[in-house]
């Protein structure tokens, strides 16, 4: 009787755990689908690609709170001619035509209820690698959330780097 209970409970626990892991795996296996399938890997890491720096497109990361997503006009500087007939670039061109911005889906953000006011600028100044917070975006074909920006995670890094852990450093 006791044995049976033990077996059942172990099985139950195992099912729960694996189910949870599967769920985790499925839910984060891929990032959100974007209006235009932008491929970071192709732009940044691909051998024969343009091998752009992050800051080429996210050009305000070093100067402002937001890294910023480039406007379509920036994309069209190159894509006016390069790969102009690929279907995704055509989508992009269509947006540019309409003078509209694609409704990009955010991958990294903090909930408004967290009252966090993140600023990229001091992090870039402190030479924190983009990868530290954003994961291997350069290798990703579709970006997903790889790093869990919990408060403990932030505090941990701030303490290690002797950065301020004053509440007002992030919250206000």
């Amino acid at each position: 009787m006791r044995k049976l209970t033990a077996v059942i409970s172990i099985l139950f626990a195992a099912t729960l755990t694996s189910g949870f892991m599967l769920f985790e795996a499925f839910s984060t296996s891929d990032g959100p689908r974007q209006p235009v399938e932008f491929d970071h890997w192709q732009h940044v890491s691909k051998e024969e690609g343009p091998q752009l720096e992050c800051s080429t497109c996210h050009q305000y990361a070093s100067a402002s709170p937001n890294a910023t997503i480039p406007s379509v006009s920036t994309c069209m500087v190159c894509h006016e001619s390069i790969n102009a007939d690929s279907p995704e670039v055509k989508k992009l061109a269509a947006f540019a035509e309409r003078e509209a911005e694609p409704p990009w889906v955010r991958v990294y953000w903090s909930e408004p209820s967290a009252n966090v006011f993140f600023n990229h600028k001091p992090h870039i100044r402190a030479e924190i690698d983009c990868v530290a917070c954003h994961g291997q975006v350069s290798q990703a074909r579709r970006v997903k959330r790889e790093v869990n920006h919990s408060m403990g995670w932030c505090i941990d890094c701030h303490s290690r780097k002797n950065a301020s852990i004053d509440c007002y450093a992030c919250h206000r």
């Binding site: 004053d166 509440c167 007002y168």
Partner: peptide, 18 residues
């Protein structure tokens, strides 16, 4: 809970989500 505390800049801070 330290939701209000003093900063190094002499401000009396109120941390809403604490």
């Amino acid at each position: 809970v330290y939701a209000t505390y003093h900063t190094e800049e002499g401000l009396n801070a109120q941390v809403y989500n604490r």
